[in-house]
Amino acid sequence: MSATTAETTPAKPTPPAKRGYLGMLWADKFATFAAIFLIIVVFCALFGPLLLGDAASGQNLRARNAAPFTLERGFLYILGGDALGRPLLPRIVVAAQNTIMVAAGAVAASFLIGATLGLIAGYSRKILSEVIMRLADVIMSFPSLLLAVIVLYILEPSVGNLIIVLAITRIPIYLRTTRAEVLEVRERMFVQAAQVMGASTFRIVFRHILPVILPTLVTIATLDFAFVMLAESALSFLGIGIQPPEITWGLMVSQGRQYLTSAWWLAFWPGLVIILTTMSLNLLSSWMRVALDPTQRWRLEIGGKNA
């Protein structure tokens, strides 16, 4: 596959959007792995509770902290059992739903709101910009965990409320980054040229500015995905956040932490899944950064030799 890519591309410069993306993905083995892993995670999030919901909540005190890597109790116990003897593998699969919902929801909401406000603040340079920036200051100087605790004490710690809380606390980072980038990009030659040629503000923002700042924002968003999952887990550590019998990966890590020295697998597997998910997102995003950037694309198009 990589060989064909290498042969065909120089000869026939078709636009990569037509045929190249899968090929380019294949060219980056890390990105391929990441994509496959994320597809599995999304599948678990969508169908996990449906398929394994019962297995994940069935308690069995005799299988308490059952050790991993043995098929003695059946395949579901391959990763071991938790403190109530519930098999870890199905629990991780089922927990994907809440975890991904919280993380994706919070990241998407804060990304959209933050970037929009940032564009406005960066481009308008008027009172509006001031108001937005002061708002960001208020949120930013409000310690995120404290805000989360206060809000979750007033509301109850459900998935929806958790998304709201985490989204609010993450808005400033998108807002400030976007604004900073806009301030820089709008002074560049091509934007000023567009302005001189009478392009509308809307067009300038979406055709000229957004594409330039998007890679940075996507990089932050992928890392924020990790941050949000970890913040959710820190809330669990402090005894707030999602409460049992609901499960998330963060909650599993936090509940398993007290067994770190006696039954490491309780905290290790969900922790590993968090790490793998965030890493996959990041690998995919750096692949995307290259694939979407016309000046970098050749790295992938000449095949896997370089990667």
Binding site: L223, A234, G250, V253, G271, I274, I275, N282
Partner: peptide, 17 residues
């Protein structure tokens, strides 16, 4: 990139303990 990412993705209470 990989190492920094692994570090940044692990829960800090986990690392601490």
């Amino acid at each position: 990139s990989l190492l920094s990412l692994i570090g940044a993705s692990a829960p800090d209470f986990w690392i601490a303990i």
